[in-house]
Simulated scan of single mutants.
Amino acid sequence: MSSKDEKNLSQVIEKISKMDEPRRSVMQQVHDIIMTAEPTLKPRIWYGMPAYAKAASSPALVTLRNDERLNLAITEKPAFRPAGGVDGALMPAAWYFESVDEYTARRIAEIVHSVVD
């Protein structure tokens, strides 16, 4: 890991560590899920949020927000695909969550895989 990657990772971990509980634990869990799902992604701060990109100098693909609700979002950079089914041409781009159970963890991993592929 390059020193820039290490610095960026440190900044993401610091950002998460400053969050109040129980959000801090949930966000740390989501960070771990993202890094396990796609270990080649590079954590970094993107517009003040923890984010994940293909390289330290490339745009973020996925962000985590800690606002009124916790949020996992796909940035505008990856290719979007219509959802199909009942959602037709709508393109999912953000998901809110308050906790992470087994199903949510799997779904987060699937979302992350979808933006990297």
Rank of each mutant, 00 (worst) to 15 (best):
M1P: 02
M1Y: 05
M1T: 11
S2L: 13
S3K: 06
K4I: 15
E6P: 05
K7Y: 04
N8E: 10
N8R: 07
S10C: 06
S10E: 09
S10L: 13
S10R: 10
I13V: 14
E14A: 12
K15N: 14
K15H: 11
K15C: 05
S17I: 11
M19E: 14
D20E: 13
D20A: 13
D20F: 01
E21Y: 07
R23D: 15
R23W: 08
S25Y: 02
V26N: 00
M27P: 03
M27T: 02
M27C: 06
Q28I: 03
Q28Y: 04
Q29V: 07
Q29E: 13
V30T: 07
H31M: 14
D32T: 14
I33N: 00
I34K: 04
A37F: 01
A37L: 11
A37E: 08
E38L: 11
E38Q: 15
K42W: 03
R44W: 04
I45H: 01
I45E: 09
W46M: 09
W46K: 04
Y47G: 01
Y47H: 09
Y47W: 10
G48H: 01
A51L: 09
Y52H: 10
Y52D: 00
A53V: 14
A55S: 13
A55H: 11
A55P: 02
A55R: 14
A56R: 01
S58D: 07
P59R: 15
P59S: 07
P59V: 10
P59N: 12
P59W: 02
A60G: 05
A60Q: 01
A60L: 09
A60C: 08
L61W: 05
L61R: 02
V62R: 04
T63I: 15
T63W: 01
T63D: 02
T63E: 01
L64C: 06
L64Q: 01
L64S: 00
N66R: 07
N66H: 07
D67K: 10
R69D: 11
L70I: 14
L72F: 06
L72A: 08
A73W: 09
A73Y: 06
A73E: 13
I74C: 05
I74V: 15
T75I: 14
K77E: 12
P78E: 03
A79L: 11
A79T: 15
R81G: 05
A83P: 10
A83D: 12
G84M: 03
G84Y: 06
G85E: 06
G85S: 04
V86A: 10
G88A: 08
G88V: 13
G88I: 11
G88W: 03
G88T: 09
A89S: 14
M91S: 12
P92Y: 04
P92T: 07
P92S: 03
P92Q: 11
A94L: 07
A94P: 04
A94I: 15
Y96N: 11
Y96D: 13
F97Y: 03
S99H: 02
V100E: 02
D101E: 03
E102V: 12
Y103C: 08
Y103F: 14
A105C: 09
A105Y: 01
A105V: 09
R106L: 12
R106E: 15
A109C: 08
E110H: 06
I111W: 04
V112L: 00
V112W: 04
V115T: 11
V115H: 02
V115G: 04
V115Y: 00
V116F: 00
D117P: 10
D117C: 09
